[in-house]
């Protein structure tokens, strides 16, 4: 797989105005280096890259826990990934860039462990570790992490509940038939 340089620079984050004073030092330490990640989109996707997909395949089931019986899960997960990719395609370029930078943070070997507590492959992380990461980000004093957590959850929920396969779970009969 071709490897390209991702400019996940500290300046990029500052421009997006996400960083409060407290997060500055953290972001400075963790992102002050140019990292090596692939920017190649995964086959069948327009924006998601293979490392994003690996991360989402671990994180989404934790967010969706309790919503479906196990045999439906693989199909629903695949449909959610397709939906997230479709939504990325319709975001404004700057919101898309912001979202992909968030995914970079979660998958970049330099930042992933220290920011999420998930060291090593996402696929090997236990649901508890992932739950802890989401809870920590939600409760954090750092706006950057609050916002990142909210963004992941929003993307995940919109993708899941806009699919007819989820409607039975929430008692939604679907739109009426207008003939």
């Amino acid at each position: 797989m071709p490897i390209t340089t991702s400019k996940l620079t500290r300046r990029g984050f500052l421009k997006l105005g996400l960083v409060t004073g407290a997060t500055l030092s953290l972001v400075g330490v963790t992102l002050g280096v140019t990292s090596w990640v692939t920017n190649q989109t995964a086959s069948g996707f327009s924006y998601l890259r293979s490392q994003d997909i690996a991360m989402l395949k671990a994180v989404l089931p934790v967010i969706y826990a309790g919503t479906s019986n196990p045999e439906n899960q693989p199909a629903q997960l695949a449909a959610s990934l397709t939906m997230i990719d479709y939504n990325l395609a319709h975001l404004s370029p700057s919101m898309r860039k912001l979202t992909l930078q968030l995914f970079d943070l979660l998958t970049n070997p330099i930042t992933q462990g220290s920011l999420t507590g998930v060291w090593g492959a996402w696929s090997a992380a236990s649901p508890e570790t992932i739950q802890n990461f989401l809870n920590r980000w939600q409760a954090s004093r750092w706006t950057l992490l609050n916002q990142g957590q909210a963004a992941i959850l929003q993307l995940a929920r919109l993708a899941f509940y806009s699919q007819p396969s989820s409607w039975q779970i929430c008692g939604y009969p679907g739109p009426p038939n207008l003939g």
């Binding site: 826990a65 989401l134 929430c170």
Partner: peptide, 25 residues
């Protein structure tokens, strides 16, 4: 309140969200 919109407002993850959403009607 349609499902995706409701889910983003009701919040919570895992079982908490699932239980809130199960009561959507």
């Amino acid at each position: 309140l349609h499902p995706a919109f409701a889910a983003t407002i009701l919040g919570g993850k895992g079982q908490v969200n699932a239980q809130r959403m199960a009561k959507l009607p």
